[in-house]
Nucleic acid binder design. Structure first.
Lengths: 212, 212
DNA sequence: GAAGTTACATACCAACCAGTCGGTATGTCG
DNA sequence: CGACATACCGACTGGTTGGTATGTAACTTC
């Protein structure tokens, strides 16, 4: 029985460590194998904690799914907020730079660049309203961050389009999610990159810019 | 080949019935709950057969997944081959009518209009190469059926685009798959329809037609 | 420094999972 | 007819599942 009470900072595993490690393990594992095929035991093993810790922090596997989606929303929001595409003066340039940025993210293995909530919502949309809503929130909130720039680009050109900024913002997400499916089917990012190029071309044409 | 015909009408359940019923049950159930969350027992119950019948026709659950993807490829291919969008004289009109046809298919509940192979490949891309390949075949073969019309539309306008007919064909599938994810996240087809409208607008702009 | 709370660990369970196996009913073919 | 194959049945198995009950060490508060 080893009693150690080392009080120095950064020694033993921090107290709230298990929850964070479980969420990180959930992101990686669910993106690779999907939600249903990921077991609680597996998550615990990947996180290096026990099942007691899991059910202490999450009242069920479904609650972990919701928390994982929320965690995903938060970390991706921070990442996009800090991304350089906001730096352009012209709003259309910012929108195009955003899409180009998304294309540039297609690096590494398929599970590393695909979307957690897109994967999860496909599986649980009929069986877990809580997870579905969390995924919807993640996608819709992110799309919302594009609306102001799209709106400004419309206004700057005095356009009166028969489509809304909101629908174009959601369309960008549809193309990205669809491109991830192509990447998964083909085992590589090439087709996904081509599809994103088509999206860039569409936005250029929509706003009357010269397509490359 | 082996012509197996019932001798008299009004007989007992046909002999090859179980396999077909299992495949139909697989399409419905997997589209609703996903592949991993669908158990063999559940499939058997939905098809009204026993587990003995299941493992007689499919050597494993994974084999059923492959067969379901192939069955999906076949039935959808027949359905699209018989669809009216081929009737237009102009190849671009055929392409646009195809996309409009896909939009018109967004009827009923979400599991009824979404795509089996898009759902499955998201889950199993890293864990079941056999199913992933079957899903890739389904998507890529279907996309291929659009290439000739796109190519003809390019040639008719003497265009020299920096994108290929193949990539545009795959892009249509990406948009459709992405729109299904939006539909699943939002629990309805509206956002999916809007996204398909953007795809129609893109193709019109690409080929210099007047956008509506 | 006792009391209470939080953050884990250990041990366990009933339900469920994919897959097996011996058996039967119903063909086909010679 | 008999020999053999195919189609299907349903009980069974061993391992896994999500979830629980209980214990305990560490931190917080007074």
């Amino acid at each position: 029985m080893a009693t150690r009470h080392a009080k120095e900072p950064g020694k033993q595993p921090a107290r709230q460590d298990a929850k964070a490690k479980l969420l990180e393990a959930a992101l990686a594992t669910i993106r690779t194998k999907g939600y249903a095929a990921t077991s609680v035991d597996e998550l615990c093993a990947a996180a290096g904690v026990t099942k007691g810790a899991f059910f202490h922090h999450f009242k069920s596997k479904e609650a972990l799914g919701v928390a994982a989606a929320d965690h995903w929303s938060q970390t991706t929001a921070e990442m996009f907020a800090a991304a350089p595409y906001h730096d352009h003066a012209d709003p259309l340039a910012r929108v195009l730079a955003y899409v180009a940025f998304r294309k540039a993210l297609l690096k590494g293995g398929v599970p590393e660049f695909t979307c957690l909530v897109g994967t999860m919502v496909q599986e649980v949309h009929e069986t877990s309203p809580a997870i579905r809503d969390a995924c919807d929130r993640s996608i819709s909130t992110h799309a919302k961050t594009l609306e102001a720039d799209i709106e400004a680009a419309i206004a700057a050109r005095k356009m009166k389009p028969d489509w809304s900024a909101a629908s174009l913002a959601l369309h960008t997400q549809a193309v990205l999610q669809g491109s991830f499916i192509l990447a998964k089917a083909k085992g590589g990012a090439e087709a996904a990159a081509d599809s994103i190029d088509h999206l860039i071309r569409y936005i250029e044409l929509l706003f009357g810019a010269t397509p490359r």
